[in-house]
């Protein structure tokens, strides 16, 4: 199984070559937001306001880090469960977001929105937070600092490891993997 190196922002050309089950290493800028930040971003869009960052072509990582020790850009930084962001995700895809990183299944409306707007969903390994932290080179809070661990952040990552779960062709790596190893009875 090969590994595909990709850089952000994501282009349609990059997205078209990604398939469910592919291992990827992501390099570039990614954004970080989870429950509370999503609620605020969608409220901003609904109020006709700009988002704190231009979402076009970008990836958002569902994560709330542990505090950084002195001399480190960030603490442990693994993914949180994605379904909680499902009510908000289609709205962000609509305004140009191209990738999401988390863990766990997405709802049908999110999967349909990914196909419609040409976006992908990646899984990072939940609970491999110390390992993942080593691929994060810089981190800064760009909005909602009062949310603490839930603040919106910008990261610079190098070879951030992830797996494509949902591609633009309607495939789902969780369904595929489970079907392959499921035994009845």
């Amino acid at each position: 199984m090969g590994t595909i190196k990709i850089t952000t922002p994501l282009t349609d050309e990059t997205i078209e070559q990604l398939h469910a089950g592919d291992n990827v290493l992501i390099t570039g800028t990614i954004y970080v937001g989870r429950d509370a930040a999503h609620k605020r971003m969608v409220a901003a869009l609904d109020a006709g306001q700009e988002l704190p960052f231009d979402p076009r072509g970008q990836i958002i990582y569902y994560m709330g880090p542990s505090p950084a020790r002195p001399g480190r850009p960030i603490g442990a930084a693994g993914p949180t469960t994605s379904y909680r962001m499902d009510p908000y995700a289609p709205r962000l895809l609509e305004v140009g977001l191209k990738g999401m990183i988390g863990k766990g299944n997405r709802s049908m409306p999110v999967r349909e929105a990914m196909q419609k707007y040409k976006a992908v969903y990646f899984a990072a390994i939940g609970g491999a937070a110390a390992l993942i932290a080593n691929s994060i080179k810089e981190a800064e809070v760009i909005a909602y600092p009062e949310l603490g661990a839930e603040a919106l952040r910008r990261l610079r990552v190098e070879d951030f490891p992830a797996v494509v779960v949902n591609d633009i062709y309607g495939n789902d790596a969780y369904e595929m993997g489970k079907a392959q190893y499921r035994e009845e009875g």
């Binding site: 542990s66 480190r72 442990a76 693994g78 491999a128 937070a129 390992l131 661990a149």
Partner: peptide
């Protein structure tokens, strides 16, 4: 591969700089 990374993660965490998981 996932299990290898989980085991590697535990090794890194045991150095005392980064917790096993950000969700403590």
């Amino acid at each position: 591969a996932v299990l290898d990374q989980i085991l590697r993660n535990a090794e890194i965490a045991s150095q005392g700089e980064l917790p096993l998981c950000q969700d403590t």
